[in-house]
């Protein structure tokens, strides 16, 4: 028999660990649907985390921290956009460069802002919202109805992103840019403006992952605290078939694997916990191979659009 309390426990941890991955994956979906790879998610998470920590540290307000974090994400997104759209640098190289740059810059700035003391400065964050009665439900109560505000923001943003991409006129334009920018351009869609918008929003969403890490999880900025979440998010995009809702589900699955892995390390050390660390990547790989990437990946993702090129 499955222990229901244990399951509820694991699910609550799942939501907490999956949320940052889900934010970043959502950002990745928005960028790729506009025809741009965002390999810089990892760095943008750090930018958001530093912004949130600095904002909250300076003012003592978590909401201002949230705003600062989002702004850092927007700026880093636009920077990547400038590299990919205007300079037409290989988008993968640009993203890797951005990761290197932001890893260094956030480390440098954090030592300037918080001083060199180990552990950094604790900042005010969000506390969890308990829905009366609902949070006492068995199994799903703590994971769905006793989370911090950013979790609910994530749910809202996921639905908004789905509506934007799949149901709105502008979203159709954006998808057209991702599939065939030439055709979209001929149809009067402002391709470059659309791509800048997509990459900026993508950066802001990735930054929200960092904001969640700082303001809802550890309340302190640490160098390299993104710890590969941006790359896991890239896998979640694939597993989620480039759909906002799919990516969130994939991210939560990754969070679940992580939660199980943590639990196993303590309860049953005889089972190699690395199996559950490998599982998300393996699942993404299988999804890529079995389902095929061509069917659902935007056709023109990663190819810089050049108006003067036939």
């Amino acid at each position: 028999m499955i222990d229901l309390v244990l399951l509820g426990d694991v699910l609550a941890v799942t939501a907490r660990l999956g949320t940052p991955i889900a934010f970043a994956a959502l950002g990745g979906v928005i960028a790729e649907r506009g025809g741009l790879y965002n390999i810089g998610l990892e760095g943008q998470i750090l930018a958001g985390a530093l912004g949130a920590a600095a904002g909250s540290f300076a003012t003592g307000s978590a909401v201002i921290g949230l705003g600062c974090g989002i702004n850092c994400g927007l700026i880093s997104g636009l920077l990547l956009g400038y590299m990919s759209i205007r300079l037409r640098i290989n988008q993968l190289v640009g993203g890797i460069a951005l990761n290197l740059l932001l890893a260094g810059l956030t480390a440098f700035l954090s030592r300037q802002i918080f001083g060199a003391q180990a552990g950094g400065a604790r900042v005010n964050g969000f506390s969890q919202i308990d829905f009366p009665f609902l949070s006492d439900l068995p199994v799903v109560g703590p994971s769905l109805f006793s989370q911090d505000p950013l979790f609910y923001l994530l749910i809202g943003l996921a639905i908004a992103a789905w509506f934007w991409l799949m149901k709105s006129h502008k979203g159709l334009d954006q998808r057209a840019v991702g599939e065939n920018p030439k055709a979209a351009d001929l149809a009067g869609v402002p391709v470059f403006r659309m791509q800048y918008l997509a990459i900026a929003v993508s950066g802001a969403l990735a930054a929200l992952a960092g904001v969640h890490l700082v303001l809802s999880q550890v309340y302190v900025f640490a160098e390299g605290m993104s710890a590969g979440k941006g790359f896991i998010a890239l896998a979640a995009i694939i597993l989620g078939r480039w759909s906002p809702i799919g990516a969130i589900c994939a991210a939560l699955f990754f969070g679940f694997c992580d939660a199980v892995q943590f639990k196993l390390q303590f309860t049953s050390p005889e089972i190699p916990y690395q199996l559950f660390l490998i599982l998300p990547y393996f699942a993404s790989l299988i999804a890529l191979v079995v389902l095929g990437a061509k069917a659902s990946a935007p056709a023109s993702v990663g190819l810089p659009y050049d108006r003067e090129h036939r």
Partner: peptide, 25 residues
């Protein structure tokens, strides 16, 4: 001098070199 400056330089090196190798119109 904080050693993280060098990480920034490494990132910038990639950005600038990649930009330099793309022929601007």
């Amino acid at each position: 001098v904080d050693s993280s400056v060098i990480e920034v330089v490494e990132g910038l090196v990639v950005v600038f070199v990649a930009a330099a190798l793309v022929t601007p119109r």
